[in-house]
Simulated assay, not measured.
Amino acid sequence: MKTAILTYWPLAVAVTLGGLAAAQAYGSKAPHTPLAVEQVGAELARTVSYGLIDDRSALPSPVETRGVSSSELQQAS
């Protein structure tokens, strides 16, 4: 059994690499293009409806407000 493995491993590697190359060349992958606004909105709505996004999962603000309310921040800008 050991001699069979030592004899045929290059063939197994070549067949595997050939199969991967063929799949890469003839595959029908979609190009990586930006999503349309409507599709992004639909994906966001789906993630919210599935419960993947909620109020607790929001990241804390990187800017420290030091007691300033959000309405005061909006008026300042």
Rank of each mutant, 00 (worst) to 15 (best):
I5Y: 05
I5T: 04
I5M: 11
I5E: 05
I5C: 03
L6E: 12
L6R: 11
T7N: 09
T7Y: 02
T7Q: 11
Y8M: 10
Y8F: 14
Y8R: 07
W9C: 00
W9Q: 03
W9E: 04
W9P: 00
P10T: 04
P10S: 00
P10A: 02
L11V: 14
L11R: 04
L11A: 14
A12T: 11
A12M: 09
V13D: 06
V13C: 05
V13A: 15
V13M: 11
V13E: 11
A14M: 11
A14Y: 03
V15F: 13
V15I: 15
V15P: 07
V15A: 15
T16G: 06
T16S: 11
T16K: 05
L17K: 03
L17M: 13
L17Q: 08
L17F: 10
L17H: 02
L17I: 13
L17W: 10
G18E: 00
G18K: 01
G19P: 04
G19L: 08
G19C: 06
L20Q: 04
L20F: 09
L20I: 12
L20N: 05
A21R: 02
A21G: 08
A21Y: 03
A21I: 13
A21Q: 01
A22S: 06
A22L: 10
A22M: 09
A22H: 02
A22Y: 14
A23L: 14
A23W: 09
A23I: 07
A23Q: 01
Q24A: 15
Q24S: 10
Q24K: 12
A25V: 11
A25R: 15
A25Y: 02
A25E: 11
Y26H: 13
Y26V: 10
Y26R: 09
Y26W: 07
Y26C: 10
G27H: 02
G27Q: 11
G27E: 00
G27W: 00
G27K: 04
S28C: 07
S28H: 14
S28M: 11
K29C: 08
K29N: 15
K29E: 15
K29H: 12
K29Y: 08
A30V: 05
A30P: 07
A30L: 15
P31Q: 12
P31D: 15
P31S: 13
H32R: 13
H32N: 10
H32S: 13
H32E: 15
T33L: 07
P34V: 11
P34E: 12
P34H: 04
L35I: 02
L35V: 06
L35P: 09
A36Y: 01
A36E: 08
A36T: 14
A36V: 02
A36L: 04
A36Q: 06
A36S: 14
V37A: 12
V37G: 03
V37M: 07
V37T: 12
E38P: 00
E38G: 05
E38N: 08
E38W: 01
E38D: 14
Q39F: 01
Q39Y: 00
Q39V: 11
Q39N: 12
V40D: 07
V40Y: 06
V40S: 07
